[in-house]
Structures are given as C-alpha cells and as structure tokens.
Amino acid sequence: MALSEPAPRPAQEQIRPTDSGDSAFAAAARAVALRAPLRPAVPVPMPVAPGTAELSGPVFGTADVGPLDHDLTRQHRGEPVGERIVVAGRVTDRRGRPVRGQLVELWQANAAGRYAHPLDRHPAPLDPHFTGAGRCLTDGDGRYRFVTIRPGAYPLGGANDAWRAAHLHFSLFGTAFTQRLVTQMYFPGDPLLPDDIIRNAVSDAAARARLVSALDRALGEPGRSLGYRWDIVLDGPSATWTEGAR
C-alpha cells in the first residue's frame, strides 16, 4: 500500500460514547488516569537467558518502505499548503553506535494544526494534499531524512484553553525490541513550548530539551525549504549490550 492511499479505517477511530462532547483535553486526562499501570514495572532478571527474544527485534527493508515514503509533500496530486521543511538526523544507541537500516515512522498535523484523522474534531481546514504520514529507513550511518511541512499548533481545550506546540510524532526501532521508542519532536523557539502539557510530561528539564530540534540550514534545500536537525538516542539493552561493558 502506498502511503498516499487512504489508510485502513481501524475501529479505534471511533469515539467512545462516554467521550463524545468531551474536549480533547478531557479525553487525554481520562486516558492518563485510567490507563497508566499502578504497579511498578517488574525488572527483568539479569543476566537474561541466551535467546531472549527482546534482545533482538524486527528488521525492515526495501519491501517495507517505498522510495518516496519519506516525502510527505509528494503523496498527492498537488503540493500541501504550508512551510516546507526537511527534518533529518541520526539514530544511535547510548554508546553512539548508529542504528542502521531501521524503520523510522512519522505522523503529524497539517499546516493548520489538523490531523487527517476522523477523531480530530478541531475545526481547522483539512488539506486534500496532505495525509501527514511518512516512513524511511536509516542509512548505513544511522541517518534518516524526511521532507514535509511544518505542522500548526492546535488546541486541546479544557478550562485553561491548553494548546499543543507544533510537533512531529516519531516511531523508532533499534536493533532490539527493548529499544523501541515512540516520541515527539518540537521546533526551536516555539513560544508554546513551556506550556505544552504533553512535552511537560517529561519531568527532567534536560530530557525535555532533547525533544527540541535545531535549525540547521545545511539540511534544507536552498530556496525551497529550511532544515531541522534532530538526533535520536535509543535506550534499552540489546544483544550487543550483553557482550559489552557492564
């Protein structure tokens, strides 16, 4: 399936009856309250047995990702509205070793701050030329690159009229299942950053800062787009970690 085709409509896109009429803020708060486990996660006994599945992980290749899947501005007949950007960086583990040939997925709102998703009721215009989903594989040095448009901010509602700062959702795989990462990237200098309640879910200020990309003119296409650099460091043990310096 090419990314430009309509995505399958999983039933998860249905609004729960109890949520109808709620603000996005209320629905998010309810999810946080009722879904986070109450018990601490159980540490996996170390050292793990040989053949522990989680120290390896899925592999992807050219069968999975098409040559234009990284370019969210070329998935439809026309160009999307918005400020064209390039977002690129390097994926490594905590020892700085590149994560090679691995899948990176991205999804985002359009330039007006609306997702092409039936659950998004924000009355901002949809863009018929923008789905807001892309994929790529990291290269031999762990580098990824997307061409897209800068997403808009959007309201969550609630009593304090909370807004999300502009952000890109990222999904990453390492060499091990334990290194799975789903996260969000932000833009430097965005005045909404200090008040973004999702970003502020990361309590450590230094860690929060690592979610913000940097303007990097060298990554953009001259006369066409600005570039933003965002390097990603995956956590968690992997098969090579068990042989490494513990």
Binding site: A28, W107, H117, L119, H169, V182
Partner: peptide
C-alpha cells in the same frame, strides 16, 4: 512521549 490518539493514519 505518548503515541496519542492520531497514529491511525500512519
């Protein structure tokens, strides 16, 4: 960061 409610298109 949370996967959020809008991953369904991707």
């Amino acid at each position: 960061q949370t996967i959020g409610p809008y991953y369904g298109t991707a």
